[in-house]
């Protein structure tokens, strides 16, 4: 990929190809990011952003329990979602890869990730149809006489978690499936020849081999889940706010961009920390 094409073209003209994309990224990503980082050290004086260059916003975040709680709620929900999604998606991916006939696999997989292609906002709304007090689930439970009063399903943390799990099970099934089918069938054959049963083969051979793939999928789930605003806002209601909801609250009601900027930076630092942890853990696994 590094040797240049010999010919009559001036190598300096290479810049002509690369510079537009670089300029775009500089102007609309790097510069805005720097601005945002700078704004996180500013404060709102009479509704105008004033660059005071202090840690006020950060200190306030760790000082006010309801702000800090948002971070913990976010972490709690995200960890639960990541764990449940992996546990549910792995068997599904395995069954599709191992039990479903080869020629049907593609169709079954497409069906399994069909709702992936509805709009993100609409998907959360669909769960609301099931969860509302007179919705599908309460209706079915009351109709069959299991409960007499409708359950409070919408506007709960569980609703947020179920909505998230629904989305990430699809994503993880896709990534884990592609991991499983890439494995050479010889691993399985060798294990079976050496006397391992189906479970032993899976536990000692297949699972460890797909672990790096699972980690990548789990990390992706973590990142997308902890930064999401839509699902908790639609399904979780207003009692247990996650960090992105609090950030949007700063922007909406008070137009407090500095506070929102500082919280976004904190959110980003948390994701970076988790990334470094994952990296370390993966390295330890390999050695």
């Amino acid at each position: 990929m590094n040797a240049d094409v010999s010919g009559n073209d001036d190598p300096r003209s290479a810049w002509f190809y690369v510079v537009p994309a670089l300029l775009w990224t500089m102007a609309f990503f790097v510069v805005p990011f720097a601005f945002m980082a700078a704004t996180s050290f500013a404060s709102l004086v009479r509704r105008k952003i004033t660059y005071t260059w202090d840690l006020g916003n950060y200190l306030e975040f760790f000082d006010k329990p309801y702000l800090l709680k948002g971070l913990f709620v976010s972490l709690e929900i995200t960890l639960a979602v990541t764990f449940i999604s992996v546990v549910l998606a792995y068997p599904l991916a395995w069954i599709i890869a191992e039990r479903v006939p080869k020629r049907l696999q593609r169709a079954v997989l497409i069906l399994a990730i069909l709702p992936f292609w509805t709009s993100y906002v609409v998907r959360s709304y669909s769960w609301l149809l099931l969860f509302s007090s007179n919705g599908v689930i309460n209706n079915a439970l009351m109709g069959s006489g299991i409960i007499s009063e409708p359950l409070q399903l919408a506007s709960t943390t569980s609703a947020t978690i179920i909505g998230f799990v629904h989305f990430f099970v699809m994503l993880l099934t896709l990534t884990i499936y592609s991991n499983l089918v890439q494995l050479s069938p010889n691993y399985k054959r060798a294990a079976m020849d050496l006397g391992a049963n189906t479970f032993q083969t899976f536990w000692h051979v297949i699972l460890p081999l797909t672990l790096p793939g699972i980690m990548v999928g789990a990390f992706l789930t973590f990142v997308l889940c902890i930064g999401d605003y839509i699902t908790p806002q639609i399904l979780g209601g207003n009692n247990e706010l996650v960090l992105p909801q609090i950030i949007m609250l700063q922007l909406g009601r008070r137009a407090d961009i500095p506070a929102a900027a500082s919280m976004s930076i904190i959110l980003m630092l948390v994701v970076t920390a988790v990334y470094l942890l994952c990296l370390r853990w993966l390295k330890m696994e390999r050695t």
């Binding site: 605003y229 992105p244 961009i257 900027a261």
Partner: peptide
């Protein structure tokens, strides 16, 4: 590598 919320906030500030 950066969440959409952060990209949007940065552009909003600029």
């Amino acid at each position: 590598t950066v969440s959409y919320l952060i990209i949007a906030l940065g552009l909003l500030v600029v």
